[in-house]
Nucleic acid binder design. Structure first.
Lengths: 237, 237
DNA sequence: ATGCTTGACATTGTGCACAATTAATTTTAG
DNA sequence: CTAAAATTAATTGTGCACAATGTCAAGCAT
């Protein structure tokens, strides 16, 4: 017990630094503070967070696995610019997976689970009323993840975590200013159907919910400065 | 043009080294040459492949994202030991996703696509007949991925790639010696249904196919040495 | 004999310095 | 004045050395 000077401090803080930097950058991307295409220079980030460059490097690599940043060899890291195709595929896949999650939830949900869902909705409502929009958005995403947790399928949860994150980025890229998101009312009605075990209606609601989200994107009228020239002039495809 | 001594050599080879090491390790895991739980020491691997330790480190990290190795802080890397729960979830998720892929394939497949599928089956058959079992297994997995490609949904393809890889690991862990895998006949019959646009039958075949796979695993009668104590004694489950 | 502390060893983790690559700018020849 | 070539600058990539951490075994006390 003599050797270790401050075990708690060195241990926990060191472990969390990676995670903290990771989450801060991710949050910044989802809050539109870092629009798609923004260059993420390793040195600038390392200065900004007061950590070493290799730590940033590791975080950026992790973010690239999440498809939140694209890593171009010897060119650096950029906030990802999901293609229209990718955007459509993400939402289509969410429809498939979340419909199935709804079935599993109706099968498996306990009273405690429903309580958690209600709590989440309440917090989302509060955040909405008090104008904390970013928090409301985050909670809205968490509602979907909460359902995945209740489905008791770890793999589906992992996949959906990924898809929800990418959805945020897609909305940042293609969403209008007046993007309404999941209304919390949607979640409220949905939960009611869930509790009364109306599986088919719940599934339908979920699919509509996602379709509404997707319908609010505008894939066509992109301003010139947003266009990725590489995408436009690439040889084939 | 004078400065660059051998641009092609340095470029392509350097880029591929990571990929090559990655694939060799992954292949070794799937071919049962590295059983689940095997310790993967950074230094040994770097000596073995004659590359630097940091390169190995990066590859191991990537493999941990694929859930093929588990990285324990300050303890090293081990070939992953998927839990029974995870195994079940992987197959359940494959059922969901691949059923949907079947629908998309019937909608989108061109003649060229069907030709590719037939080619794959032929090669799988040949590998089987000539006793190249590992190759047959790989081709069998590729058949499923080929379907995902034809579905024209990039996200589904990515997810399935992941799940197929994890399936290999699960089979390595829980499969009997006499594991029969996807018989190539299954694929043959399946393709016939596909071509005649018999969607429901094709979907049913796919689901049966996966269920057969899963049924050949034995989760119960594990020998004592295989039991993961962490799993047994974990606080709440 | 059992349990705890201590020290040596092995392995992983991190920061730094330098190499390699690419983009931008300037130079130079036609 | 234009265009190709060469230089320069900025940024990423890699290997090395050292620090931190965890494991194992031996010794000591109970």
């Amino acid at each position: 017990m003599i050797k270790k000077s401050f075990p708690v401090e060195s241990d926990t803080e060191t472990i969390n630094i990676d995670q903290q930097v990771y989450e801060q950058i991710k949050r910044a991307i989802f809050d539109h503070r870092l629009p798609p295409g923004t260059k993420l220079t390793e040195e600038k980030l390392s200065d900004l967070f007061a950590v070493s460059r290799e730590r940033i490097r590791k975080v950026l690599q992790r973010l690239s696995y999440d498809k939140c940043v694209s890593l171009k060899p010897n060119r650096g890291a950029y906030v990802a610019q999901p293609s229209v195709q990718e955007a459509r595929d993400v939402f289509a896949t969410r429809g498939l997976i979340e419909s199935h999650i709804v079935e599993l939830v109706v099968q498996n949900a306990t009273e405690a689970d429903y309580a958690h869902l209600e709590q989440n909705i309440a917090r989302e409502y509060a955040a909405h009323q008090q104008g904390r929009l970013n928090e409301a958005i985050a909670l809205s995403g968490e509602f979907h993840l909460l359902l995945a947790e209740i489905s008791r399928n770890i793999v589906l949860l992992d996949i959906l975590r990924d898809l929800v994150a990418r959805s945020s980025l897609i909305i940042a890229m293609y969403g209008r200013q007046s993007f309404s998101l999941c209304g919390y009312e949607d979640h409220q009605v949905f939960l009611k159907r869930l509790k009364t075990r109306q599986v088919q209606q719940a599934k339908k609601l979920m699919q509509e919910h996602l379709r509404t989200l997707e319908a609010q994107l505008y894939f066509e009228a992109r301003s010139a400065r947003d266009i990725d020239l590489t995408e436009v002039f690439k040889p084939k495809a």
